[in-house]
């Protein structure tokens, strides 16, 4: 991230209340992840130790230090989605995209396809539980997801069956 962009983000926060998480959230949304250089630049600019920022970024599941693919697919693993078959949707997605996810050593779930086109992540709940199971692609929610409807949704994002 450019220094100027970062400065613009920092300038949005005129009070220390909610500032650090707010800035990190804006970086995450704009870049899809939090680049190391940006984090180090931020540490200097807002005078917060890098060890503390790193601690925050690894604590909250919304932040990621790894770059993501072109499209980010987030599957809800909330209770309502779970009892309505979210695990099956995730399995189907993994087999369609030929990826194999497991929780990594930092406790987060994030897998990117080899061609870097899709990253699959897990969320707790989008508050659209009535349409369970729910998944989100690049910010758009899809309700009533099931293994059969997945291919059609993915095709909208440039996926082709092998």
């Amino acid at each position: 991230m450019e220094e100027k962009t970062l400065e613009e983000i920092i300038a949005r926060y005129d009070s220390p209340t909610g500032k650090v998480l707010g800035i990190l959230g804006d970086i995450q949304r704009s870049e899809g992840y939090i680049p190391r250089e940006t984090l180090e630049m931020l540490s200097v600019k807002i005078d917060v130790r890098i060890s503390q920022l790193y601690s925050i970024v690894t604590f909250y599941s919304f932040f990621s230090l790894k770059p993501v693919g072109e499209h980010v697919i987030t599957i809800c693993m909330g209770t309502a989605c779970h009892v309505r078959g979210a695990v099956g949707v995730l399995d189907a997605l993994e087999s369609l995209l030929d990826i194999h996810g497991d929780t990594t050593e930092d406790g987060k779930f994030s897998v990117t396809t080899k061609d870097n086109k899709f990253t699959v992540e897990i969320a707790r709940c989008f508050g659209a539980c009535s349409m369970a199971p729910v998944l989100q692609i690049d910010g758009t929610l899809y309700g009533y997801a099931n293994p059969d409807t997945l291919p059609a949704i993915l095709e909208q994002y440039g996926w082709r069956a092998a």
């Binding site: 130790r49 060890s51 503390q52 790193y54 601690s55 690894t58 604590f59 930092d106 406790g107």
Partner: peptide
């Protein structure tokens, strides 16, 4: 401030 907790749970 050299060290801190990393990750959670």
């Amino acid at each position: 401030g050299a060290i801190n907790f990393i990750n959670r749970g």
